[in-house]
Design a protein around this nucleic acid. Sequence first.
RNA 1: GCGGGACUAACUCAGUGGCAGAGUGCAACCUUGCCAAGGUUGAAGUCGAGGGUUCAAAUCCCUUGUCCCGCUCCA
Length: 506
Amino acid sequence: MAIQESDLMQKIVSLSKRRGFVFQSSEIYGGLKSAYDYGPLGVELKRNLMAEWWRAMVHEREDVVGLDASIIMHPDVWKASGHLAGFSDPLVDCRNCKERFRADKAPKVEAGTDIDYLEGGKKGGKKLKAKAERSYVCPQCGSPDLSPERQFNLMFRSNIGPVDVLGRITEVVERERNLTGADLRAKIEEVVKESAVYLRPETAQAMFVQFLNVQQTMSMKVPFGIAQMGKSFRNEVTVEHFIFRSCEFEQMEMEYFCEPGTQGQWLDYWVEQRMAWWRAFANNKDKFRTRAHEKAELAHYADRCYDIEYDYPWGWGELEGVASRTDYDLKKHSESSGTKLSYFDQNKNDPATGKPGYRYTPYVIEPAAGATRGLLVYLIDAYHEEAVPDAKGEDATRVTLRLHPRLAPIKVAVLPLVKKDGMPEAARKVVDTFFKAGINVRYDEQHAIGKRYRRHDEAGTPYCLTIDGQTLTDGTVTIRDRDTMKQERIAADRALEVVQERLRKI
RNA sequence: GCGGGACUAACUCAGUGGCAGAGUGCAACCUUGCCAAGGUUGAAGUCGAGGGUUCAAAUCCCUUGUCCCGCUCCA
């Protein structure tokens, strides 16, 4: 059944709530913008997704190791990485060409003079003339038509320590009564900064900062990678599309350190690896694509970058970025901390001198994926409706989440056909074997069997084991496939083995 | 950030100034023997929040929150 794209997101949001995948945060208090909670099924799906990533990126590789760093780091980390730069500098938007720029870096003019510029900043645009209200114009199009200067807080700022920072601010305000505006602000900033800490806007920096510790303790040889999953926080300008862009989100990032000059081949390698990983769990593999960044689009630290994009109901959008970050971050942290973050290869000659031993700052390839975006992508990918006649022969819609069995929150539902004649007891015995094997199983005896099947279809449960009258006489159960609704009869004491086999081979 | 729309039971929604409703779901019991089965009974709502107009507000007005759509912005 074709699903209208505009309806699809609504259906997914609705199902997410109905079945316990995603709830709005603090809903009973009216909700909080762009914050979501992962319910009983959502947390399983997210954990499964992240476990698969960890398995592919860390456990199944000899050249990558893991890290789980603190969310709050030394503030100088963010100064060195460049994340703090936009913090204290006022930013201005050009109303003419929409460029956003730092006021202190803009071309200077004399306030009050007439300025000529082109509409939209484009060649052939209408010629415009206006008086400069401020002492600078837009660096892009020369327009004096500008928004007010504004402080943008990309990062969530807090203050560490038990002393209330408001008390210190009050002292400053009382002491500096003659100061106003920017001067007063600067004084307050000084006091706030003493104890200021930031919630990390990406997990990446910890992997650069801990580069030496990880490399030395694990005796890693370049090329090697450090992988980390976890929460990051950004004050986004706009939040949108359910969990697609939110201020608190979860990342799966890996920094792959390689020899300068080899970054191109490693970039290509990781783009291919990551693409294959996403597609492996998807039903609609052509909904994923890669897109190379234009030169102008590249971040200041990158020399090349690919986005892995997904065809969301609202169009193509980012899912993972694979960036060639050069040696920017390690160099910055070396300069800033005074600790040399470099690698010494005893088996190579220095290309500059030809002498044995080569010390260099590694280049970095960074596959950075959104875990919560991944969850959304797989929910969209899995959502399936089909017309199936119901017991009365009337048209009904069957909703199935065709999640990959390894991602599915519940792997197996064990269902007594009716709750009498010893069937619940026989079912619980089967359930127990799955408990012991560490496979997420649900026992379910509520309502008619058909309803239980459909409920588990919506939850994405790939297999239902049904205990019926025959189980009691010959020890067999039926195993039902979520997508085909076909049933097979197997021995109850082989059920665990059969499910394990199916989970393994896909 | 701008414009438009929505918000009523757990879900989907009806109700446009006069008793708070339906279907689904949920709970209990009976029945039932494989694809949202039938029956009986039951619980469930500060009508997003706050203020105002009115004899009377889910309904009209103002403020506000959240979500959605489009543009814009961000990356």
